[in-house]
């Protein structure tokens, strides 16, 4: 039996069509003028114990809604959802015993208390026996240097320290599944690396299933065995990371600030590139912010360095930034059939 079993899961929200003005607000109280939003429109997948699954998609795709149904906060509109054999919504307290949850920057520890006290309280809440508690605390200390933070109040910790504490805390009671929502957001590279190491170790220690929602593709590359891409409430892709890796790894976005930028510059750029590299250059050009042009390159077809020097030779470039492909772009490409 899979740990998480989802079949035909849907979630609809009824949103009130708000009317304007004072009179409108008054009528809103009595009217039934709703529109239905399909946040999740029929998804199915199974997750086995021990998997680390990246659950990704653009904002508004239905990620959070699915996670909320898996953790028992939201009641599904229809379909089947079972975690460890039970429906989450009807068994919130019981399910909480086998789950760990970390969501982004909001800590779940006790704000005014020293770190160690939070862990001790969690020990009581989850009824962790002393031996497992000690073992885990030692492990956390090895991985993360937790002991140094024991006496500090949670509110005095830096964001990175707090995230590490929250993540380790979520594993304290040896849950079967841990939901990590944006665990590395806003953190610098070294802390990100540390967090990724910790997650990997903890997954291996007890074969804990991990569901990771993130916008950071570095997280996905480093941790996930499997990826599920969701957009507009439906699953676009569900499979091995390797196929998608090729997709991410190859793409880069060049952000250029071109001097004397006019309406025709984009068009000129496109013409010149087609001239040089042929019609199937796989390069897309767009103006996304004022004065900045985004040139997205598929390195499998055209090397970044070539394109960069070409543009710099032909246009007056004042500033350059190089970025990894964005989540939105990935989804766009998957839509267009990049994964076949």
């Amino acid at each position: 039996m899979s740990l998480i079993h989802i079949d035909g899961l849907t979630k609809h929200f009824k949103i009130l069509n708000r009317r304007e003005g004072l009179r409108g607000a008054f009528r809103d109280l009595f009217s039934g003028d709703y529109r239905t939003v399909e946040a999740v429109a029929g998804i199915s997948f199974d997750i086995e114990p021990g998997e680390i699954v990246g659950y990704i998609g653009p904002n508004g795709a239905g990620k959070s809604t699915t996670i909320k149904m898996m953790t028992g906060i939201l009641k599904p509109t229809s379909g089947v959802i079972q975690v460890n054999g039970l429906a989450p919504y009807d068994n919130r307290i019981r399910q909480a015993q086998i789950m760990g949850v970390v969501f982004g920057q909001r800590t779940q520890l006790w704000w005014d208390l020293p770190v160690i006290e939070s862990f001790k309280i969690l020990k009581e809440i989850y009824k962790v026996d002393q031996k497992m508690f000690d073992r885990h605390m030692d492990m956390f200390n090895e991985l993360v240097g937790l002991k140094a933070l024991y006496p500090q109040q949670v509110r005095t910790l830096s964001l990175g320290q707090r995230m590490l504490c929250d993540i380790t805390a979520s594993f304290l009671h040896n849950p079967q599944v841990v939901f990590l929502d944006e665990p590395t957001i806003g953190l610098d590279i070294s802390v990100k690396a540390k967090i990724r190491t910790v997650i990997k170790e903890l997954n291996q220690e007890h074969n804990t299933t991990i569901i990771l929602t993130t916008h950071d593709l570095g997280d996905v590359e480093a941790l996930c065995h499997r990826i599920i891409i969701i957009d507009k409430g439906r699953i676009l892709y569900d499979g091995d990371i390797k196929r998608v890796n090729a997709l991410f790894g190859a793409y880069r976005t060049l952000k250029l600030q071109i001097d004397k930028f006019t309406d025709s510059t984009l068009h000129e750029l496109n013409l010149k590139l087609t001239d040089c590299y042929g019609a199937k250059h796989g390069i897309t050009i767009a103006e996304t912010e004022e004065f900045w042009t985004d040139v997205t390159i598929d390195q499998a077809r055209t090397p970044l360095s070539d394109v960069l020097s070409f543009v710099m030779n032909n246009f007056p470039v004042i500033d350059v930034r190089i970025l990894e492909i964005s989540m939105e772009n990935v989804v766009q490409r998957v839509y267009e059939g990049a994964l076949g």
Binding site: T71, G72, I73, R92, I93, R94, A96, Q97, M99, V101, F103, R106, Q108, I125, Y126
Partner: peptide, 12 residues
């Protein structure tokens, strides 16, 4: 949105 955290523990 910080009210969410109260749903996740095995507590009333």
């Amino acid at each position: 949105g910080t009210f969410l955290k109260y749903y996740f523990r095995p507590l009333n």
